[in-house]
Each structure stands twice: as C-alpha cells, then as structure tokens.
Design a protein around this nucleic acid. Structure first.
Lengths: 146, 146
DNA sequence: ATATTAAACGATAATTATTCTCATTTGTCA
DNA sequence: TGACAAATGAGAATAATTATCGTTTAATAT
C-alpha cells in the first residue's frame, strides 16, 4: 500500500531536491499559496502569512515567490505584468508571445478556430470574449540559441 | 467617389467627437503608436516621440495613453499587468477573468476544446502552449449591478 | 548533541513604473 | 483676437519590486 504524502511532506521533498532549506517562513508561504483558490498578489500572500508569522517581512515573501517561480512550484498568471504594453490594433486579434524576448506578435482572429467550452462556465459568468495567447519562442530567439 | 481620409484626419475627427483637443504631442504619440507594429511600453513610446518633440515629458505620454485607453483608441495587451498574480495550480488550465473585480477563476484544460491555428504561425515561431483567457463579468459582479 | 557554514531572514534603502500637482502654455470657439 | 478650458512640462509623490547587509537559522558532518 502506497504511503500517502501530506502536502507538507511533498513540499519538503521538493525543496530538498532543489537544494532549498525548509524554513518555517517558506513553508507557510507555500501552504497559504496553495490554500487560497485565488490568484493572489504577493501583498495578499504577505497578509495571510503575517497572521501566522507576525514578524515576517514583505521582502521575504517576494524572495520566496521568486524562488518558487524559478523552481516551477508556482506560475505567474500573466507573462507581461510589470509594465503596460499597448496595442493600437483595434481589429479583433490574439497574440503570440515570445517568452525569451517578450515580443508580442498579432494573430488575426480569423486565423484561429473559435474557442469552444465543453460545459457552461462558472455559475453566472457572462462571457465577453476570449483572448488567446500563443506562448513560445520567436524565430529570432530560436535562431540566436543556435 | 468617397474621400479617402488620412490617418491624421481620422484621428482629428475622433478627437473632436470625444471633445479632445488636437495637440501636436497627442498627434505624434498616436501616430507613433500606430506606426510601430510592436506592442510598446509607455517608455518606448516616449523614446520614439522624443525624437520628434525633444521637450515632451514622460508624464504627457502616460496621460495621453490613458486618455486613448479610456477612449478605446488603444487597448492594453494584458488585463492584469501592474501587479504580479500568482498561481499555485500546476495542472494545465486556463483562466476566466472578471473585468469588474479582477478575480481570476481556473478552467481545467479539459473544459476547452484544443485551439487550432488555421495556418502556420509567424515564421520560425516555436509554440510551447496556448493560454486562454475568458473575459467577462463574474456572477457576483453581474448580480451587484442588479 | 554540537560546531560550522551557507542559506535565509528582517529591516530598510534603492529602483522602477506610474500617478499626481501645479504653474504655464496652447487649442477651441465665440 | 480674446477668454477659457484643456493640455503641457517639471518635478514631487506613490506603489510595486528588488537589492543590500548584518543577524539568525537550517543542514551536515562531526
């Protein structure tokens, strides 16, 4: 019979594999991130963690969030938060984003088959439109890597 | 025979309709935004405009960008730039975003039919994955508006 | 268990992106 | 052309994030 690992145990194992110390702060930050079904900001995580570790500093939250992102334990919802990117193309279209150089290319809406949901969305959610991002590496960046 | 409006004339007409003064700065900012096929940051727009109006201030660029966004002449590429949003869900999934309260709901990948491009992408672009955002208004916000 | 050492922490300064304020200048319209 | 509201430029203020650095803590080898 398979041992059932607790979240805590899984977390510790992943840290060890990554060479990361299992600190109290790190553990609580991760636990809270998983606990909230939301997609919190670092500030919101800080608030939740502070309820349990009053002395924690916001910088520690940021540092660990970055560590977790690098380690793949966490994802960021948007590739291009951080600075406003403007789009003067008013025709309906989607985007192709290079994760290397962050350049953004337009894809006319007509190039993509319409999105179809298999079931009805979250109760009462009124859909305006779909926005598709094709993520990958652009020709130039792929070439630059040989 | 229909008169062919220049971009400049179209822009002036839209400004008039919106009650916006047609200033030199505003005109050049908009022209540069349309000229670049890219999706520039305000800073990048500022650099381009400064080549033509050396005395322009970055604040003016920001103010006009905001004005254009409000007016719908411009879009922002990402709804949630500005602050990092974290996601501890490591299963492949997409997002449903409320443009009112900015809450983000997960949609399991299996709920959406796979995206299909009709033609090959931008030369040499290597696709990693697709990220779909369903934009609209969540149940709670829709209810709050009556 | 304890000593050693590198990693992590907390406090806080620094940086970056963005917004705000206000005195001056410039379009708009009579 | 003149009056007035709107827009501009300069720079201060704020928000989000990163960096620095002295102290504390977890990992590990005794």
């Amino acid at each position: 019979m398979q041992p059932i690992e607790s979240l805590q145990q899984q977390f510790e194992a992943r840290c060890r594999k990554l060479g990361l110390a299992v600190t109290h702060q790190r553990t609580v930050i991760y636990r809270e991130l998983v606990a909230t079904g939301e997609h919190p900001t670092p500030e919101a995580v800080y608030e939740r963690v502070k309820a349990q570790i009053p002395a924690i500093s916001l910088g520690t939250v940021y540092k660990n969030v970055k560590t977790f992102l690098d380690a793949g334990l966490l994802k960021e919802v948007s590739l291009h938060h951080g600075t406003l990117r403007l789009d003067a193309n008013t025709d309906p279209h989607h985007h192709m984003v290079c994760r290397q150089c962050r350049r953004i290319f337009d894809i006319p809406e007509s190039e993509i088959e319409p999105v179809r949901l298999k079931n009805l969305p979250e109760s009462g959610f009124q859909i305006d439109r779909f926005s598709i991002e094709v993520l990958g590496v652009c020709g130039a960046c792929a070439a630059a890597r040989e």
